[in-house]
Amino acid sequence: MISIKEVLILVALFFSIGVYGVLTRRNTIGILMSIELLFNSACLSFVTFSKYYYPAFLKGQIFVLFIISVAAADTVVGLALLLCIYRKLKDVYVDRINIMKG
């Protein structure tokens, strides 16, 4: 039998890895992928709580559906912005893009 804490610790680990990716990836696409990891960890925790505490209650799963959709929209816009930046600056490495430096 899998206890809820095991699943949640997996989620926490997964989330931390995503944070690490967001903070260190130089490539913009890498950052976007790390953000997907963060989204997934959140989804997983929703599903877990839903299944363990409110099995007959579908809100948790519906929420995950919404998150997936929003993540899709997010990724689409993110990639479009990325293409724009790439066309303007010929670069996708965020540590070289500092035109907003104060």
Partner: peptide
Amino acid sequence: IKQTSEQKGISICISIVIFGILCGCIL
């Protein structure tokens, strides 16, 4: 090309701390 930036050390720290906080909460 190197894929990780210079702020690797601090990033690891932050990630571990976040993980620790989350685990602490969960446990």
